[in-house]
Amino acid sequence: MSMVEALREALAEEMRRDSSVIVMGEDVGVLGGIYRVTQGLLEEFGPERVRDTPISEEAFMGAAIGAAVTGLRPVVEIMYADFLANCMNQIVNFAAKMRYCSGGQLRVPVVVRTMVGHGRGHGGDHSQVPMTWFMNIPGLRLVAPSTPYDAKGLLKTAIRDDSPVLFFEPHLLYRVRGPVPEEEYTIPFGRADIKRRGEDVTIVAVSAMVPRAVEAHERLREEGITAEVIDPRTLNPLDIETIVESVKRTNRLITVEYSPKTGGVGAEIAALVVERAFDYLDAPIIRVAAPDVPVPVSPPLGRMTVPTVEEIVEAVEALL
């Protein structure tokens, strides 16, 4: 099934299992979400639990927080991750901090589902992949699935978690299909998935960059190079142990993301690896990332802001 269908199943199953789970956001009810993730939920669960909101991110994010600290488990949809900027105050100053600043009195079980990296001409303020905005905010969990299987299992874990979770759904992979079992399962946070085994280089790829890294692995194999491909799946908590263990074997690291390079996921992972495995590195760490520009609309320019399989292959070749 597609990632959209997997997410929809996760939501429906959790809403059936727990009546405190509610869904709200722009166009999530009657329309079923502009990506159709929430399609059918209004019909099954009714308008009290599936709420179309005004275009008012700060309000419904705040409302989700207020509902969460008094007994509900809201799942909020932010249509484009860019719009997280519209409710940054509620997420950063309240969701992330209320547990700590109340001395543990409050729990904030909110899930914020959002779409990242539209990738098709939507321009600078409708295309961002802003996981890194939140990486230095203690108190948040950050989830970035790359397969339907992971999306479903991680969303169920997110809904059951007592901390606020930002759940980044890659537009580029919404319609890509993959196996999802019939039976119930969840995926714990903080456990990376080794997508391909390899000995020559470790590639840590995030979100929609994971399938590109896997494809790079296949091409490199034809040249006799084996690349280990790791998908961290959650950026907070980050399974740095799996990455470090891999680098100790391969002695080389490449990170791949489609956020701007400066202050990115790659920067953090590189720093952690240098701290923990400096002596094992045989080459500089390379960060493959978006250039430090807003995403332009014009197709040939826009394409240059999303790393390609070729760029990943070239980065590996440059290292070896």
């Binding site: 509610i22 927080i65 207020g66 969460a68 008094t70 809201p74 509620q90």
Partner: peptide, 25 residues
Amino acid sequence: VVYACPIVGSNIPIAAGVGLSIKLR
């Protein structure tokens, strides 16, 4: 006393959410 929100106005949407939880519960 659920929380004290020291950023001016931020408790206004949060209160709506507390109201929503009361309503749904």
